[in-house]
Write a protein that binds this DNA or RNA. Structure first.
Lengths: 196, 196
DNA sequence: CGTCTCCTTGAGTTAACTCAACGTACGTGG
DNA sequence: CCACGTACGTTGAGTTAACTCAAGGAGACG
């Protein structure tokens, strides 16, 4: 992923959509297709996105010859799994408001880790229906939750731009901790300076 | 994992538990700890379990020298992630009855793939509270769902033993397909014969 | 015999859902 | 330029799935 946003999703009962992952610039989409034959989810872009493709054969050849590279990509898979686990906890044990707040927190931190801007604004070309399918709630309810977040002055939510007004309150609502994102590498902390 | 059951779980709001993964014999627990410093979830056993431990240094050395082995274990991680994705869809877009049925289906298929017995009985030393924390529902509601499954003659659920009486009905309720488990390797189908 | 854990049941409450309608912005073709 | 369709956001009203609280029953065990 070079720019833009991609999401993974599944259809349940051949009608209800659940978004299972969000990819931000810097992420690697669908590594598993190198070694696992069957696709188990669909990938789509949220608005315009720039994506680089790698030929599988060449990629496999490189990985076979470099344990270091394999390890690096394997690590990428571990982070993906850790995020999935957090989403499971999010969907299973938080109510809608906390759930949505948690998604925003995660995206903010992941984007800050890439941008290094320290900004509290997110430009994501998603609709409230997309957000609903991330959070496992209905579109109507997603709208009400967005309004609740606006009303409590935690954030602004113009159609496509989210401006976080009160990071502490947001993480409080979301019960958010960025531990699972594994952003601290080799003793250095990739995000603390921006978040602080 | 040699025998028994282990589950991964997270605490949300430092009180509510969500189980994020179930490990059956043959699975490999916590591969990520080889390369990722921070633990993001807890592992506990459901009743007695026999687990083999590997020294990290030796393991890493082996993986560095064998791309084939690395690949095999990496593949294990992919399956783990695919299962996590399915759980996300399960928690986000199915109601409690379907959710629990889906968990049963998954466990049945995974255990059949290991046992090769083709049996429709599962002996799992979990309480209804554990099941509730897998499904993201309350203990009381889990009990009512279990009773509903019993009443509709889809399965028997003695405290620790589940006997599936009507596999087709169960998969129908659960909207279950085993595709995501990636059990078909190199053209051979590991489970179809048992399921059929 | 008491205690503990687990299962079960009832009653009242709440979060989230569905259905339906309406406003607004945007693009497109007449 | 205007009429129209479409996609998205918003709101209200009624419904339902799931929750919490509370209590009681069954079995295991020291």
């Amino acid at each position: 992923m070079l720019s833009g946003f991609v999401y993974g999703h599944k259809l349940v009962n051949s009608s209800r959509r659940q978004i299972t992952s969000l990819l931000v610039p810097g992420d690697i989409a669908d590594l598993q297709c190198l070694y696992v034959p069957k696709l188990d989810h669909n990938l789509s872009a949220l608005g315009p996105a720039v994506v680089a493709f790698f030929p599988h054969a060449a990629f496999r050849a490189i990985l076979d010859q470099s344990p270091q590279l394999s390890q690096a990509f394997w690590r990428e898979t571990f982070v993906e799994t850790a995020i999935a686990r957090e989403w499971i906890a999010n969907l299973g044990r938080r109510e809608a408001l906390a759930r949505m707040a948690h998604v925003i927190c995660e995206l903010a931190v992941r984007l800050r880790a890439v941008d290094r801007t320290g900004s509290f604004s997110l430009f994501i070309p998603w609709t409230q229906m997309d957000v609903a399918d991330v959070c496992g709630i209905s579109g109507v309810h997603a709208n009400r939750v967005v309004q609740e977040l606006r009303r409590s002055r935690v954030l602004d939510w113009d159609p496509r731009q989210i401006r976080i007004l009160d990071w502490d309150a947001l993480t409080e609502i979301a019960d958010f901790s960025d531990d699972y994102l594994q952003l601290r590498i080799a003793g250095r902390d990739l995000v603390a300076s921006e978040v602080a």
